[in-house]
Design a protein around this nucleic acid. Structure first.
Length: 859
RNA sequence: GCGCGAUUAGCUCAGUGGUAGAGCGCCUGCUUCACACGCAGGAAGUCGCAGGUUCGAACCCUGUAUCGCGCACCA
């Protein structure tokens, strides 16, 4: 192989390796493989979507799990795809239509409009899929699915028919969340309560039977007065009890001042407002229920788009609901019945998609009574499915405990059409089936909530053969924001239709936020484009940098600097390998056990084992940042900073072969361990150095050996750090070579003199038995290092320095002594802890003596 | 209102009972024959606050503050 370039250039290699993986079919899942199966279904991104940092985190995590699984001998299925995103996609295409052709979907008609959406989907729907490829995702692209694929769509309809047959799906006229912009009903989950600063408007109404007596009503929505059909008070409320059964005059609309009954209902709070509630059954959920209890008429004064209809009276008709509010207040003021406007903050439901206030609206919709709720709760409670982090289990359980029927119909065109047919005008007949029952039958115009299709994702994306090998899936990687939307529903669907849980573990990633802690969003424009980051730092740098700061389930404050560090780490790894390459060809079969190794080499192998264990533990517990950190520490610290530097002393010695063998052995394992996080660079280095012609994905995962740590290695490293510190204390430039001397603490130290000399950049390093005159002493665990002071520093500064050191050591000794002289400590603390303190005390004493000797030697 | 997280060095975060850590940033010195996307050294923290348990608390308990997130029909 040609020489590695001086710096790693990701752009030159990423494309090449991705095509190579694809061409070798390495992402393909073989259901007939004898290997144990491992599977993940991708949380399908919207077809309208573009890659965000959230996707990067989520999909890099899945890729890591999948590559690791392949390396540990599993047959892996990572099943990709997208969902049709009903509202979002329809909105995008409608907007385009309006802009380019000044038409609405109604101008085109349903069939033509849907044709246009498909056209749009074919053209733009694949963007995010291609972006995932740039990221290195090892999905089985031959199995890519879309929630509107023919087979999948049919399954969705079959499920509807089945649940209808079981009596779980029903049609009903109910209060639903209505989006006046999308003109469709929404599920409860698609409504986000937001605190809104508004006013509590107080106005008074006269009691018909008691002229001159008024009730004061407080409301946040005066624009709905025209829809009021009663006034309610709490029957226990002594202030108003006597009025129950009487009537008030409704002030609006002016031309139709209706007479409303005063009713008593327990739902009315004493303390809130005035304790008198205007009841608007058509436009408030609570009011609707009160209305049902008291058989009140329902007076709908709003159009679907949130404007007022003719029932609101001629002063209001056509006004938007918020304009109408202003107008209503004006009218109350003109009538002289507005008592006060009190600033008031309340929560108003907003549409998740369009971000406008949702309007409670009475309409005919399809609802689902969820199947298998008890089983779904039990599956998580009994840990058949494990959540990481576990705290989401409680949230999940609470939601299921209070679960409400799901409004699954949407007044859209883009989606799975409801398989219900109507016939006849007067007494319509209804049939629930997929095919048309024949002439004269008209299909329900509505479509299903997108989640009603994606809740089948885990099993319906697989054919029978795949399901046999790969279902239940191993793990689901997703964000906690779709715990209810998707995760919980998928569990219920899985239990209902496969009789099994859909996945064994759920790993919830954190949410990527900006430096101010705000969620990244398109509208805020605070999300960097991951493709730009890939271009700048490489996919590996982005993946590693992001995963390293993504502790389990905690939100991530994104900082581009972290990605820079990922890139830097790639470069470090690159150069370590490049350095190895400069020593000659590698040996793919390198076996350290066949060589007599330096203590540095033996200790490195022990640290490698410890790293492999840390990494294994990380995978076990989904601690992705721990894994990244362990590999970073080992590669940069143990391997590059310490071992390679020590190894340089062996290159001209008989140790050369053994040391190179350890390097080869270790680099192979580093590349394997890092491959899941940094697939491109590891592949490039693996092949570039000549370790093999297979992909790392097909290689084996490193196992621990039987290396024994040698504490002498750390003693040398620590001594080096102390000596360098001493040199820095005297401001000796690091390029100035000094003639160090050493009084060794043990015989073995002679063996590491060449390495020590290299570490210290020493011009020479000779041993001496007694402290030489004119040197500064640095007591270490490997002996006393003597730094020549001549021409550098005078004896009095050295004396001052030593006295300072002695002061610090004495303080430490005092600290330990205090603890050891505490009888209860010695009595109660576990023996090893006490022993450790004793040892510590002794170490400090030794150091003190050495320092004092050095001080005396200065005279 | 209930529940859940977070609070440790300037920044981003590790650290679940025994000598407070990492990376970045900062300061100092270095183009030392892999790497300036680098090397070496350094300064820097009353671990949000107040109690408690313990020989010993960043860690366990109680309370509290601030920030964030869920859930909830107070109009």
């Amino acid at each position: 192989m040609s020489e590695l370039s001086k710096a790693y250039e990701p752009a030159l290699v990423e494309e090449k390796w991705y095509s190579w993986w694809i061409s070798r079919g390495l992402f393909r899942a073989d259901p007939s493989s004898p290997k144990p199966g491992y599977s993940i279904v991708i949380p399908p991104p919207n077809v309208t979507g573009v890659l965000t940092l959230g996707h990067v985190l989520n999909n890099a995590t899945q890729d890591i799990l999948c590559r690791h699984a392949r390396q540990t001998g599993h047959e892996v299925l990572w099943l990709p795809g997208t969902d049709h995103a009903g509202i979002a996609t329809q909105t995008v295409v409608e907007r385009k239509l309006r802009k380019e052709e000044k038409k609405t979907r109604h101008d085109l008609g349903r069939e033509e409009f849907l044709r246009r959406v498909w056209e749009w989907k074919e053209k733009h729907g694949g963007i995010i899929i291609n972006q995932l490829k740039k990221l290195g995702c090892s999905c089985d692209w031959e199995r890519e699915r879309f929630t509107m694929d023919e087979a999948y769509a049919r399954k969705v309809q079959e499920v509807f028919v089945d649940l209808h047959g079981k009596g779980l799906i029903y049609r009903g006229k109910r209060m639903v969340n209505w989006c006046p912009v999308s003109l469709t009903a929404l599920s409860d989950e698609e409504v986000l309560p937001k605190p809104q600063k508004g006013y509590l408007y107080h106005f008074k109404v006269e009691i018909v039977e008691r002229p001159g007596t008024f009730l004061e009503i407080a409301t946040t929505r005066p624009e709905t007065i025209m829809g009021d059909t009663a006034v309610a008070v709490n029957p226990q409320d002594p202030r108003y009890q006597e009025f129950i059964g009487l009537h008030v005059r409704r002030p609006l609309p002016l031309d139709d001042p209706a007479i409303l009954p005063i009713i008593g209902d327990d739902d009315v709070e004493f303390e809130f407002g005035t304790g008198v509630l205007k009841v608007t059954p058509a436009h408030d959920k609570t009011d609707y229920e009160i209305g049902l209890r008291h058989k009140l008429p329902v007076l709908d004064i709003l159009n679907p788009d949130g404007t007022m209809n003719e029932l609101a009276g001629e002063d209001f008709v056509g006004l938007d609901r918020f304009e109408a509010r202003v107008e209503a207040v004006d009218k109350l003021r003109e009538l002289g019945i507005l008592v006060k406007e009190e600033p008031h903050e309340n929560h108003v439901g907003f549409s998740e998609r369009t971000d406008v206030p949702v309007e409670p609206r009475l309409s005919e919709q399809w609802f689902l009574k969820y199947p298998k709720t008890a089983e779904a709760r039990a599956a998580v409670r009994d840990h058949l499915i494990r959540f990481f982090p576990a705290r989401w289990e409680k949230v999940y359980d609470h939601w299921l405990e209070n679960i409400q029927d799901w409004c699954i119909s949407r007044q859209l065109w883009w989606g799975h059409r409801i398989p219900v047919w109507y016939s006849g005008d007067e007494t319509p007949q209804i049939k629930c089936q997929i095919e048309s029952p024949g002439e004269g039958w008209v299909q329900d115009p509505d479509v299903l909530d997108t989640w009603f299709s994606s809740w089948l994702w885990a099993h319906e994306t697989m054919d029978a053969e795949a399901r046999k090998a790969f279902y239940p899936t191993s793990v689901l990687v997703t964000g906690p924001d779709i715990l209810f939307f998707w995760v919980a529903r998928m569990i219920m669907a899985g239990l209902e239709y496969t009789g099994e849980i859909p996945f064994r573990s759920v790993y919830f990633t954190g949410i990527v936020r900006d430096k101010q802690g705000r969620k990244m969003s398109k509208s805020l424009g605070n999300s960097p484009d991951p493709l730009d980051l890939i271009a700048k730092y490489g996919a590996d740098g982005l993946r590693f940098g992001l995963l390293r700061i993504a502790p389990q389930g905690q939100d991530i404050k994104f900082d581009e600097q972290q990605i820079v560090e990922g890139r830097n780490f790639c470069n470090k790894l690159w150069n370590a390998c490049r350095f190895r390459q400069m020593q000659g060809a590698v040996d793919p079969e390198a076996d350290p056990s066949k060589h007599d190794l330096s203590l540095f080499a033996r200790d490195l192998l022990a640290k490698l084992d410890a790293t492999i264990l840390r990494v294994a533990e990380g995978y076990e517990n989904f601690r992705f940042s721990d894994i990244a950190q362990a590999l970073y520490d080992f590669t940069w610290g143990d391997f590059c900073d310490r071992f390679i530097e020590a190894a340089k002393a062996d290159f001209d010695s008989p140790r050369r072969a053994g040391t190179l063998a350890v390097m080869d052995f270790t680099i192979q394992r580093i590349l394997k361990l890092l491959h899941p996080y940094m697939p491109f660079i590891t592949e490039e280095l693996w092949s570039g150095l000549g370790f093999g012609s297979q992909s790392l994905m097909e290689s084996s995962w490193p196992t621990v050996g039987n290396a024994v740590p040698d504490p002498r290695a750390d003693a040398v490293y620590a001594a080096v750090a102390q000596a360098r510190n001493l040199r820095a204390t005297y401001h000796i430039p690091s390029n100035k070579r000094l003639a160090w001397k050493l009084t060794p603490a043990a015989e073995w130290v002679e063996g590491v003199l060449p390495a020590l000399a290299l570490f210290l950049q020493a011009s020479s390093l000779e041993c001496c038995e007694v402290a030489p005159v004119g040197f500064a002493a640095c007591p270490t665990d490997v002996g006393i290092l003597h730094l020549p002071l001549e021409g550098v520093v005078d004896a009095s500064s050295e004396r001052r320095r030593l006295q300072g050191e002695i002061g610090k050591v004495e303080a430490e000794i005092a600290k330990v002594a205090a603890k050891l002289s505490n009888e209860t400590f010695v009595k109660n603390a576990p023996a090893p802890v006490v022993a450790e303190h004793r040892q510590r005390q002794q170490d400090w004493m030794t150091r003190l003596e050495e320092l004092q000797t050095a001080l005396r030697a200065l005279g």
